[in-house]
Design a protein around this nucleic acid. Structure first.
Lengths: 344, 344
DNA sequence: TATATTCCTGATACCGCTATCATTCTTGGT
DNA sequence: ACCAAGAATGATAGCGGTATCAGGAATATA
């Protein structure tokens, strides 16, 4: 360092971050920037020899591409948004997990939007999410506000609605009919000979559909006095215990209780055990979801099996197919099945 | 339309997407683009009157800002990456949920990285994630490869490690000591008079630390023949049943079993019930995590309480503080507490 | 009323990468 | 050996915002 440094020339504007850029890699490899870009995105277009030089330069510099810049230029963010009510609940968590896993292998990252169980939250979230220019979006449920729908349409990206069914999705759908679930469970239990019913039901949209269908089906068979404990979403063990206690303490015990989720059903099992009631003799229970633990409770829990992994995986495949412009089935009813185990 | 349209002039390159841009909003509002930008990001800098005109233009057009472009220019992606092993498990899901919630209110979106329980996966994931230029990153655990650490350092962004403890985090940390947990549980049980111990332990890094500390502490008190059932991560109800069955069927029953998680402990409760064993008289159990259901099992589950919400929230606060360049505590030991309920 | 300050607004030039089109090499056919 | 066609590479000009600096309007100070 010389003692008399020249007065610092007040230069205009250096705005760059310190990070290595594709330009620098290009210079180092002795090619043009665009060739480096191609080496990264479509290596088959670049001669093996140059490719190698480029890769060496990348290794030497530890270059990490800037996908914000790339995304801006190419209009592909390689981000996919997923909107779910909550994830602290195996139901949705497993779906998202599979969805994320699959997209990861294709180079996409998932951006999480948690909307809670209140529809009002969705609009704002959607806007926030769309501003990140996702390449596709995953939604839970099929009821969305007019604003949400129009924003989604305007974004012109693949949209998968899940976890419910409608013949007229915004774009694509993979789910099942909650109405059919309610009906099928009612039929299953009635056919087994049960006549006095109880329900522990959360009050979110889809649980309500199951409940209505369940009640309607029973009503068709002349059963109208179902004991219902309604709890707030999300359901949990504590609320389940409270719900079954409410029902049992009201007198006139039901023979069987249909719960909005396996967690609630599990809590019924526990309450029965606490009271020394035998399941299913004194009180039968059926859940919904077929969570991992269902086959291993005592007695094993009867429930409605939903293939959550399949929903996540299928949704990811649909999204990828659309991004890659392959033809696909746009509406997939993944179905469900009633699994009778020891608790009924 | 005239019948003889002029032959379409083959113009150079229109590359824009159809979307409304800030430019158009500016024109409509009769201001310059930069003023619109300010109206969105620092509205207090813009005169109320212009602000209103701009907001009206935004409403009229349904303009949605492009955060890829904004992020590129400002070097702020408003994305935060969160790396967790899995989310189909309340332990991590609740942390992420709180983390996401808090960041959401500050305008940040969370990008999810699922690494599974194998450390090898992390490196690639980190690179993929960093290429999206996150403004901060959330990590689970404190053991990271040299590559990961150096990439993280090079990215010069806030990093919060969580769910474990070290005096020398990469940057910031909010967690607790698994070693202390193992020790404390051993002391708690031994002090209660238990002398014959069993363990059902998953084999991930942190569970192993708890296990070692648990065994070491017992060894100090001359107890060395602990029956251990080891299961793969993630633990679940099924594996828990298998684990306790393995222990019980091996003869020489332990008086108490320490499980890697509440789910495993819950499954022990169920197996005991199946066998007509009374808890805690015939077999005591203690879990880890204090999941939502723990107080409501039969008997209520003794466990180690971890304030998962606090970890998520605190991590978010730390990240925000750093982004906003506020001073903060960089290392937070959130602690834990042993909760004795009916099962011990 | 003249001048200093602060507040607002705008012009300009990028951020780092890629679409597009032009150019230069290759390769093959005759 | 010569030309056409295709393959590989490069030059150029954005993508849609915002940092930076400059200038004009509004307000305060003398």
């Amino acid at each position: 360092m010389s003692t008399h440094a020249p007065p610092p020339k007040k230069l205009r504007k250096p705005r760059s971050s310190g990070a290595i850029t594709l330009q620098e890699v290009a210079k180092l490899a002795g090619v043009s920037p665009i060739t480096v870009s191609r080496a990264l995105n479509r290596p088959e277009m670049v001669k093996p020899q140059k490719l190698e030089a480029i890769q060496a330069a990348i290794r030497r510099t530890g270059y990490v591409p800037n996908l914000l810049a790339g995304g801006l230029a190419s209009k592909k963010s390689r981000l996919v948004a997923a909107m779910v009510p909550i994830i602290s609940n195996s139901m949705f968590a497993e779906v998202i997990e599979k969805f994320t896993d699959r997209l990861d292998t294709a180079g996409y990252k998932v951006m999480l939007g948690l909307s809670g169980f209140r529809a009002e939250n969705e609009d704002g979230l959607i806007a926030a999410v769309l501003s990140r220019q996702p390449d596709a979006i995953f939604l839970t449920g099929v009821n969305h506000s007019r604003t949400t729908r129009s924003r989604l349409l305007a974004a012109r990206i693949p949209v998968v609605e899940t976890w419910d069914y409608t013949p007229t999705p915004i774009d694509m759908l993979v789910g099942f009919s909650h109405e059919k679930v309610g009906r099928t469970v009612a039929e299953y239990l009635h056919d087994k000979g049960y006549r006095r019913f109880g329900m522990i039901s959360t009050e979110d949209e889809r649980a309500n559909i199951r409940k209505s269908a369940f009640l309607a089906t029973l009503a068709e068979r002349d059963i109208t006095d179902v004991r219902i404990a309604t709890i707030t979403s999300p359901g949990n063990f504590k609320k389940g215990r409270a719900g079954i206690i409410e029902i049992l303490d009201a007198g006139e015990l039901p023979e069987v209780v249909f719960c909005s989720s396996d967690v609630l059903a599990h809590s019924v099992l526990t309450e029965a055990q606490t009271r020394g009631m035998s399941v299913p003799a004194d009180l039968a229970v059926i859940g919904f979801g077929d969570l991992e633990f269902a086959p291993y409770t005592f007695p094993a829990l009867s429930t409605v099996h939903i293939d959550r992994s399949a929903i996540g995986l299928r949704a990811a495949e649909m999204v990828l197919a659309r991004i890659e412009e392959r033809e696909i089935e746009k509406i997939v009813d993944i179905g469900f099945s009633v699994i009778g185990r020891g608790s009924t």
